[in-house]
């Protein structure tokens, strides 16, 4: 290999520049961050030790929270943003991005999380909503937001409020993937339907979706959301993750499924591998072996209406 490449022009005047100014918190920078997470697994962690296990297993990011959703369900009461000390401890423990949850509509929790320097905020139905009518105005923040959606209209409303990433809103803490599947199928089939509409029909579609016409038109043209779409809620096995990827998710969140299982490190690594090789059944069979006990699941028909998180948010 040559030590200097003569094909590279040497022009010192072109190197280094102080005239252009840097812009932070732009839509491209916020949405771009989610692009970098694609094909990856974001894991819920409650301690620095768990965060380290997640990083070593190949997580692309961790979600710092005080209790995983399964424990929030068990304990009941009001679930809020985590203690800043706890978030700081996790930020200090790992080199990968750290996300944290704010309550739906709780813009001051979001301000606090931004001040702490978290890399992404999840405006999450897993916590107890703080506002019954309004989500956070996410354009007002430098830090990007991910929001849950059960269908295309909900996804577009969140994007119009400034969400830079969307995830399905499967029932967190249940170990039951059925709701996440429903949301992913709903979003994908509504996207396909939008592409089949003519210009005039898009106005009515925007009304039905309760979403801004301009955004509906953009989505109809590009055939996908303008932001990255992940899946979340109830994933517990490598096969769950791979199925969601085959259904069109661009990456996965795993909450209680890892650290409520028998062998978290092994299960975490297996889910990471299954997310990358989601379309290779031989790899999926290999990584699904010998993972120990999965988390105990909850059948959703036994879950009372007030404990259904997906119905939180509007």
């Amino acid at each position: 290999m040559p030590t200097t490449d003569p094909s590279v022009p040497q022009d010192p005047a072109a190197v280094g520049d102080r005239t252009s100014t840097a812009a932070t918190g732009t839509a491209r920078v916020k949405r771009g961050m989610a692009q970098m997470l694609k094909g990856g697994v974001i894991m819920d962690v409650v301690t620095p030790e768990q965060a380290k296990i997640a990083e070593d297993a190949g997580a692309v990011a961790v979600m710092a929270l005080e209790r995983v959703p399964a424990d929030i369900r068990r304990d009941g009461g009001v679930a809020r943003m985590s203690d800043p000390d706890m978030i700081d401890g996790i930020v200090a423990a790992v080199s990968i991005p750290v996300m944290a949850k704010a309550r739906i509509g709780h813009f001051v929790e979001a301000q606090v999380l931004q001040a702490l320097g978290v890399d992404y905020i999840d405006e999450s139905e897993v916590l107890t909503p703080a506002d019954e009518a309004h989500h956070i105005d996410k354009w007002a923040f430098t830090v990007p937001f991910v929001c849950g959606a059960t269908n295309l209209g909900e996804a577009l409303r969140r994007i119009s409020e400034g969400a830079a990433m969307i995830r399905s809103k499967g029932e967190a803490g249940t170990g039951n993937v059925v709701e996440a599947v429903r949301h992913m199928r709903a979003i994908r089939s509504e996207l396909r339907r939008l592409q089949s509409l003519d210009e005039a029909e898009l106005f009515a579609a925007a009304k039905d979706l309760r979403a801004p016409y301009e955004l509906v038109r953009e989505v109809a043209q590009i055939g996908s959301l303008p932001v990255v779409l992940f899946t979340a809620g109830g994933l517990a096995t490598p096969a769950d993750a791979a199925m969601m990827m085959q259904l069109g998710a661009q990456g996965v969140f795993v909450g209680s499924g890892i650290f409520k299982s028998g062998d978290p490190a092994k299960r975490a690594a297996a889910i990471v591998k299954a997310t990358t090789f989601y379309d290779d059944p031989d790899v999926l069979a290999k990584v699904s072996r010998g993972l120990g006990e999965p988390m105990v699941g909850i059948n959703l028909d036994t879950l009372p209406a007030e404990q259904r998180y997906a119905e939180r948010g509007w």
Partner: peptide, 11 residues
């Protein structure tokens, strides 16, 4: 961290 992420022109 992400809040310091930026875009700008450069030669």
């Amino acid at each position: 961290r992400q809040v310091e992420s930026f875009e700008r022109d450069l030669p």
